[in-house]
């Protein structure tokens, strides 16, 4: 029993009572910071966002891990009181873009004749091989990254257009045009009975 850190004050306090009473053991209460606690609460949503970007479950959790590493290192840059979710979405999105670019470079290196292949198509091809992926995943995979991230933020995470625009540092018009194109593409792929 090396450490008994508990994330919740209330819970920790009561457990401390219990342990004292039962065994005379003193429980070390949480030294989890407010930042970490907020991050823990946010994890389920971050995983969902990661999945909507990366689509493959294992890739998505890897993406989460990379984004968390970056966020924990950059904790000092988070302004207390500002929205942690927007901050984390932005970090995750940047991590994903880095990964997309790295993957694109790799595919260019190894498959020179496929030069000009869009990243979205490359992703699609890779994911197409995994039959267990649902139609929505395949349709999302076929979207270029700049459309996929807008769809993920607005349709999956429920952000307002303005929030998405701020997060991506883009004008509203760019957000809406990507959203329109992304949606049209999804409708085409998923059929009338979307």
């Amino acid at each position: 029993m090396s450490s008994h850190r508990v994330a919740w004050d209330e819970t920790g306090e009561i457990i401390r009572f219990i342990l004292k009473a039962v065994d005379g053991t003193e429980l070390r209460t949480s030294d989890v910071t407010e930042f970490e606690r907020a991050l823990l609460d946010l994890l389920p949503r971050l995983r969902r966002f990661a999945r909507a970007l990366a689509l493959d479950a294992a890739d998505a959790d890897d993406l989460c891990q990379i984004a968390l590493e970056r966020a924990l290192k950059a904790e000092a840059q988070w302004e207390k009181g500002s929205r942690l979710d927007s901050w984390m979405y932005r970090i995750m999105r940047n991590c994903w873009i880095d990964e997309v670019r790295a993957r694109k470079r790799r595919s260019e290196t190894f498959v020179a004749e496929e030069e000009g292949l869009a990243v979205g198509e490359a992703d699609d091809r890779r994911i197409e091989a995994r039959v267990e992926l649902g139609h929505v995943d395949r349709a999302m995979a076929a979207l270029p990254p700049e459309q996929r991230e807008v769809i993920a933020l607005i349709l999956v995470e429920g952000l307002a257009y303005r929030e998405a625009a701020e997060l991506l540092d883009l004008p509203m018009g760019t957000i809406t045009s990507r959203l329109v194109r992304g949606r049209q593409a999804l409708l085409e792929m998923l059929g009338e009975a979307a």
């Binding site: 850190r5 994330a7 819970t11 823990l40 994890l43 389920p44 995983r47 969902r48 891990q65 968390l68």
Partner: peptide, 20 residues
């Protein structure tokens, strides 16, 4: 996905005993 339990390896990055 948001309703799934968070994998321990992710939660543990933020708090090593966070599985509570």
């Amino acid at each position: 996905i948001a309703a799934e339990p968070v994998p321990a390896r992710l939660a543990a990055m933020v708090d090593p005993s966070s599985n509570v």
